[in-house]
Amino acid sequence: MLERLGHTVEFPPSQTCCGQMHYNTGYQAEALPLLSRFVDGFEHAEAVCVPSASCVAMMREHYVMMAEAMGDASLLARVKALLPRIYEFSELLVNFLKVEDVGAYYPHSVVYHPSCHSLRMLHVGDAPKKLLRKVRGLNLIEMPNATQCCGFGGTFAIKNAEVSAAMLSEKSRDVLNTNAEVCTALDNSCLMQIYGGLHRQRAGVQTLHLAEILAHTEATEDLAAGGPEGEHAKEHEAAQ
């Protein structure tokens, strides 16, 4: 999608993880070595696009603190120089590139889940909805109780699996009540939780990252019909 808009996209292959899982679970010492690795890999870029709001929140909330904790003045300076150029995906489009219509076509009904970190830490506001409203054929449906957490919360989903599941059951109900075909968000982690619950119920609703919807045009394959079963079916057909 970014290339379609005329931008040069690079994927630094050295990249791994922002360290959020470690940091938020209490393994802050284990997250520290990942900081310099991230800065090395990305500081040459004019803008860094991070298609995960919670990773951006991790960077903005903790990277300066981490560099300070390491007592590394030069790393701290590099972190401070890099941070203003880090954008969450919808921020990059709407705030930095000033584009709302990315020329996408997606003829399905979609419900948007505002993930907690995009909503309360990045304050992305309406940016994702502005992008979705400009997608041709797309029917954007409002979700009740949209701002309530889906129950993912990183390792919370495993450490407090039952409470997480109870929270998910409310989110699943809200998604299903909209009768939408697809639920989208700025975080694949939340979507993994939501899809995990919906698929367990065989609810027949897909989850897609906003980028996947915005990448879609008349020329691309329909993702709503996809999902793992779709892929599996295709593989099965191919084998026959």
Partner: peptide, 9 residues
């Protein structure tokens, strides 16, 4: 301290 999804509400 783990009884939270860190949703920020």
């Amino acid at each position: 301290p783990y009884a939270s999804s860190l949703c920020g509400a």
